[in-house]
Design a protein around this nucleic acid. Structure first.
Lengths: 224, 224
DNA sequence: GTCTATAGGGTGATAGAC
DNA sequence: GTCTATCACCCTATAGAC
């Protein structure tokens, strides 16, 4: 199964498939189209991956590893350095939002990474579910635990609601990036807007958790 | 046109297709499977809708009409009755959250409605885009305008960020309902949890917009 | 590893009887 | 409107030459 030679063809297939799967779904993409896109042979997918399904599973692992975030787990390991100080808690929230926003909404990664991420979440096949359990769930739990450090009196269930509040807004903008183009005045997802998202989502969490607002987030609020 | 007692073949096809499209996608569903599911003939789809693609477009319109919410537009028409009173503004936010949560997360509609809704947003074909413009965007704008009534000093762009905050959390739980079952301790999406979501999302908005918290939302907050 | 050719099966759509 | 039979097409996967 594991072939050492010509990793370029194998990787080219992976990237071409990623783009097509993200746009048209697995069922909507033929191995012919994949091979054609990266100028490989029609039989290449089956040679390198065994089947289209295997290619998809490999791709899921590839993408989830690529967009994985580490800030929350790092923060948990150093929690004695910030968890007692409310203003540092607020900054920790900001850091988590910033890292994830940049991972998901950025030119740091190809856009199809996050598109495919959405598809993976929408319809996880059994094999994919295992990968989600390995990669996505630990991240979710890490964010939840960071938020609990910010408000130790908060129960697990309430912390998970706040984790949802954080994650859902970021995930939403992955959708929005395509969807908002249907609006009469489409948003431009440039770095200015991305920065506004980071600041807004951070504020939502910090106000919601009743943490002190860091000074660098205060400006631009037009109401008391 | 509408016959509730004995669904016509055309309606049966629509509902069967909805369930299958929601679960497996359009490309992943054959017209044979649709016909088999509602015990219609293999040729019925093409007879009643002309093509599989036409069936999909009809289905999109059907589902979007079904899950459409009216509270925000109603509120806008009566805004002189509440917009001056901050506590009534907070209640207006709660009402919008409640109506949409019940539309999306409920046994009020079949679960595949919202599943298919996600797919529609993820991959809008040109024909579908027009339907989104007709139905989804006016709702978004109505919520945005209600939030602007709550905080008249807020600019349009800021109001849209808060609209995103509201919508994204609700949309997220459509995902979550399936995805959370992968967690070690899966959430149960019963009416208790649904109620908790409504209260939480309302709180996020009300605190974020610095409106007074209605007394019926205050209980259960474990921190000051 | 790459390529061609092809097997074997499922697909959407249609013609025509009833 | 419903049904059967069938078409032409595209699909995945594989065998075997190079």
């Amino acid at each position: 199964m594991e072939q050492e030679a010509t990793p370029t063809t194998k990787e080219a297939l992976l990237l071409a498939a990623g783009e097509l799967f993200a746009e048209n779904g697995v069922e909507g993409t033929s191995i012919r189209a994949i091979a054609e896109k990266c100028q490989a042979n029609i039989a290449a997918v089956n040679y390198h991956f065994g089947s289209k399904e295997n290619l998809y599973v490999a791709l899921v692992r590839y993408v989830l590893e690529k967009i994985k975030c580490y800030r929350a787990e790092d923060l948990l390991q150093n929690k004695q350095e910030w968890a007692q100080d409310p203003i540092k808690c607020a900054e920790a929230v900001y850091q988590i939002v910033e890292e994830r926003c940049q991972q998901y909404l950025t030119s740091l990664h190809p856009h199809w990474y996050s598109q495919l991420f959405m598809r993976i979440l929408l319809q996880p096949t059994p094999a994919v579910s295992e990968i989600i359990k390995d990669i996505v769930i630990p991240e979710y739990n890490a964010i939840r635990d960071v938020l609990r450090c910010c408000r130790p009196e908060m129960g697990v269930e309430e912390a998970e609601l706040w984790t949802d509040t954080l994650m859902s807004q970021l995930v939403n903008y992955i959708f929005a990036e395509d969807l908002m183009q249907l609006f009469p005045e489409p948003r431009k997802f440039n770095s200015t807007f991305q920065n506004r998202i980071i600041r807004h989502v951070s504020k939502v969490l910090i106000r919601g958790l009743k943490l002190p607002m860091p000074s660098f987030l205060e400006e631009g609020t037009s109401y008391a």
